Computed example of a mutant assay.
Amino acid sequence: MDNTTYIALSRIDTLTRSLDVTANNLANTNTAGFKASREVFSDYIVKQKDIHQLPGGKTETYTQDRATYQDH
């Protein structure tokens, strides 16, 4: 696979995780004593240089799901 596929998959994976956490929080809003969860993401911006492009290259952003924590 090429880099663009890995970039798209990393973003899709983090968005899916974010949707899961949000759905869990919404499903349990009326539960007594429920502590909401939050997610932590980090983005890596990589500057790529290609022979066929203008000077400066292009940037690619990789996203990683770092952690999920409870909001006390």
Rank of each mutant, 00 (worst) to 15 (best):
A32M: 05
I45K: 15
E60H: 11
G33E: 06
T22N: 04
T61S: 05
D2G: 13
V40I: 13
I45G: 07
H72Q: 15
T5N: 08
Y62R: 04
E60I: 14
L54N: 12
L26H: 08
G33S: 00
T68E: 12
D71E: 15
D20L: 00
D13Y: 08
Y69S: 02
T22M: 02
K47Q: 14
P55W: 06
R17G: 03
F41Q: 11
I12N: 05
D71T: 07
N3V: 07
K35Y: 00
L15A: 00
Y44E: 10
L26S: 07
G57R: 13
D43E: 09
Q64K: 05
I51D: 13
Q64W: 02
Y44S: 12
G33Q: 01
K58F: 08
I7S: 07
E39M: 05
F34T: 01
T29P: 03
I51V: 12
P55H: 02
A8R: 15
Q64A: 06
T14P: 03
D2W: 13
A32K: 09
N28I: 06
E39D: 00
I12L: 07
A36I: 00
R38I: 04
I45V: 14
A32I: 09
Q53W: 10
Q64R: 11
A27S: 15
Y62V: 09
N28D: 01
T59C: 05
N28L: 12
Y62Q: 12
I45D: 06
D20P: 01
R38H: 08
